[in-house]
Amino acid sequence: MSEKDGTVGVGGLTAGTDGESGLLGRLLGGGDTEAETGGEGALRRLGLGVLGTAGFLVVWHLAAAAVGGILLPSPVAVAGAFVTELTAPATFTLPVLGVELGATRMLVKLVESLYHYVPGLLVGSVLGVAVGVAMGWSRALDAALTPVTRVLRPIPPLAWIAFAIIWLGVNHSGAAFIVGIGAFWINFYNAYSGVEGVPTDLKEVAASLGVDDDLTMVRKVVLPAASPSILTGIRTSIGQCWMIVVAAELFGAPGIGFQIINAAQNLAMDVSVAYMLVISAVFLVSDGLFRRVERRALEWRA
C-alpha cells in the first residue's frame, strides 16, 4: 500500500520535469530495497521523506533556472544568502539598557522579532487563559461578557493595526499588542471550552471531599481537568503568533518579517526567502520544545 503511495507522491513531484523521473525512479527503487531488507517502517518513511525533500528541491531548482533569479531564487542562492546573513557581523543595542552587543545580522533580526513576540505571546496568553477560565467558571460573568466576546472575537488581530500604531507607534509595543490580541483569543477560547468541559462528577467528588470554596475548586479540580485544552491553546498560539509577528512587521516594526519585505523591495529575493526559512526553523524548534513540555505535563492522560 505505502509503496504505491510513495511512488505516486514522488511521481507527482516530478511531473513536468522531463528527464528526472528516471533518476528518481531508480532512487525510489533503491530506497525500497533498503527499507525491505531493514524491515523497518520508520526507516522506509525516513527514506521517502528524504526523497520527497530532494524531489522538491530539484523541482524548485529547475523552476528557478527556468524563470530567473528575481522571480524565484534558486535553493543554492537561498542557502548562500542564509549563510551570509547568519554570519555577517552586526550589533544589537539592548532597548532599555542601551548596551551594544556584537552578534550576526540574522541573530539581531531574530532577537528584534522576539522582543515583541515573547511579551505579546506571554501577556496575551495569560490574560486569555485567565478570562477564559473566569468566564467558563462563573455563569454570571459568562452571561455578562458573552455578547462582547462574540462581537470582538471574529476580528482578525491585524485589523487592530491602526490602533496599535496610533496608541503605541510602529515599534515593539505596537507589534506586541497585535501579537497579544492573537494570543488572547486563541487561549481564551481553549481555556473557556476546557473549563466548560470539566466533568460534573469530578466537581461533585471534590465537594464531597471537603472542597467548599470556588478558588480551591478552580485550582485543584478545574484547572488540572482543563489543562489539556489550555495547553493546546498555548501551543496553537505559539505557532499562530509567528504568523502575526510577520504580518505586524510588514508595517514597519523591526524584525524578521520586516526583513522579508525589506530584502524583497531591494530585489534580494534570496535573502527574503532565507528569512522565511528562519521563521520556519524558529517555529519548529519552539513547537517541538513545547510538545515535549506538554507530553510531560499530560503524562497522566489516557
Binding site: P199, D201, L202, E204, V205, S208, V221, P224, A225, S227, W300, R301, A302
Partner: peptide, 12 residues
Amino acid sequence: MVFQEYGLFPWR
C-alpha cells in the same frame, strides 16, 4: 461518595 464511573482525578 463512590460513583459507578469512579470519578477519579485522572491527573493524580
